[in-house]
Amino acid sequence: MSNDDKIKKVSIIVSRGSLEGIYPGLIMANGARMEGIEANLFFTFFGLYGVLRKYMNDLKVATVGNPAMRVPDAKGFPLPTWMGAIPGMSSFATVMMKKEMDKLDIPPVGEFIEMIHDAGGKLYACKATVDMFHLSEDDFCPQMDGVLTVGDFYEISAGAQIIFT
């Protein structure tokens, strides 16, 4: 592959706040930095919970409305939505998934955000969501680089591949 064909910059939008909604964006951003690719993360709507100091380490796997989910493992029997709604189901699925992630050395959200920040990745929050949720700077983890409007986001994304998760 010639140097011109290589991806040089990515902007990754994280729009969902479940554990499985947050992680793909973080893994892709970190992976980009590890390949020497510039990475900007943009947290919007419930994805914003990935950078909220108070909640970022308590995110849970959604066990309702996910027809692909199986228990007790990925090749088990399908988990019907009504069963996913049983109290404790989401916490249980979260514990299971976190255990598997730890085996692969995938860090908890807070630590992962810090790793991406230290790797030179940039973290931004969506202004519309920040206003809608009545959030202020104190609510965010210290690694946050700022709050952006959609216009600002497109501006910093110049020349980047934009990835929506």
């Binding site: 230290d118 790797a119 030179g120």
Partner: peptide, 18 residues
Amino acid sequence: PGMRRMNKVGGIATKDLY
């Protein structure tokens, strides 16, 4: 080793590696 192992076991900071 991956980045986290470098940090936790090797004691090498992410920033330093980059």
